[in-house]
Write a protein that binds this DNA or RNA. Structure first.
Lengths: 131, 131
DNA sequence: GTACCCTCCGTACATAGGTACGGAGTCAAG
DNA sequence: CTTGACTCCGTACCTATGTACGGAGGGTAC
C-alpha cells in the first residue's frame, strides 16, 4: 500500500508540527488539499517543498504575510515585484543591523564603565539609564 | 494652584500614553502611587525619570521583565548583578547581529542573482528559496 | 478484530507590550 | 454652576505565529 502523504507525514517531512500545517492552510499559505478518504487531507510531494520554502523565507526575516505574497509571485513577469520585495527586506535588515550595532556599543560602554569606576552607592549602568 | 502630577501629565511628560502608565503599574514597573484626591493617582517628578528609564532600557533591547529586574537592582552591593545582566544582554545583541549579517548576505545574493541572470520563466529568488 | 495511532474540527491559550472601550465619577476653569 | 476634560476600573482586543485541548471517528498493523 503506497503510503499516502497525510498531514502528519507532510509535517514530519517538512520539520514542523501538524497544527502548523493546519495553521498555514487557514492562513492561505497552503492550498486546500484533496481529501479522498473520509476527510483526511492528502498532499503531494511538492507540498513539502512549499512548506520548506515558507520556513526558509521565515529564516530570512520574511513574515508569513510577505511569504504569502512571494508564493503568489512565482512566474515570469512578476520577477521584478519579487526583486523589489527582497530589496526592501534587505534594506530593513541593514537598518536593523545598524540599530543593533549602536545598541551593542551602548551596552559595551555601560559594561566597561561598570568595570572601571565602580564607586559604592550607585551603579553606573543604572545611572547611565537614568540620565 | 500648584498643578498636580496626574497620570495624564506623567504620561505626557514621559512621552507615553495614559494606559501605558497603568499597564506599567500593573506590571510592577511603577509603584502604587499616592491617591490624595478621591482616587486619582498623584506622581512625583522622579516618576518621569523612572518611565524614561524604562523607555531607554527598552530601546537597548531589554524586555519589561529585564527592566523590572534592573529597577530592583539600583544600589551598592547589587552592581555586579546589574553588570551581569548587561553583559548577558550584550552577548545576545552580538549574536543577533551575527545572525542578521548572514541573513543580509543571503538577501544580497538573491537580489544580485535576480539582477544578473534574469531568465524568463522562473524568478531566481523564488528558485533559491525552493532549493 | 482489536488495539493503537492518526486525523478531524473549532476554540482557547500562549508570548510581549501595549491599546481601546464604556460608563461613572471628579476636577478645574469660567 | 455648568461644562468639558480628565480619571477611575476591569476587561476585551490587538499583532504574529503558532500550540494545546478534547472528544469523536477512521486507518492500519498484527
Amino acid at each position: 500500500m503506497k503510503s499516502r502523504m497525510t498531514i502528519g507525514r507532510l509535517a514530519e517531512a517538512a520539520g514542523v508540527g501538524v497544527e502548523t500545517i493546519r495553521f498555514y492552510q487557514r492562513a492561505g499559505l497552503l492550498p486546500e488539499p484533496k481529501r479522498p478518504l473520509s476527510g483526511y487531507r492528502e498532499y503531494a510531494a511538492e507540498d513539502v517543498q512549499r512548506v520548506r520554502f515558507i520556513k526558509r523565507s521565515q529564516a530570512l526575516g520574511f513574515s508569513l504575510h510577505d511569504i504569502a505574497g512571494l508564493l503568489k509571485l512565482d512566474g515570469p513577469q512578476t520577477c521584478n515585484l519579487t526583486h523589489e520585495l527582497a530589496l526592501n527586506k534587505l534594506h530593513l535588515v541593514e537598518e536593523k543591523i545598524v540599530a543593533l550595532t549602536s545598541i551593542r556599543d551602548a551596552l559595551r560602554q555601560m559594561v566597561r564603565q561598570c568595570e572601571l569606576k565602580h564607586k559604592r552607592g550607585t551603579c553606573p549602568i543604572i545611572q547611565s539609564l537614568i540620565d
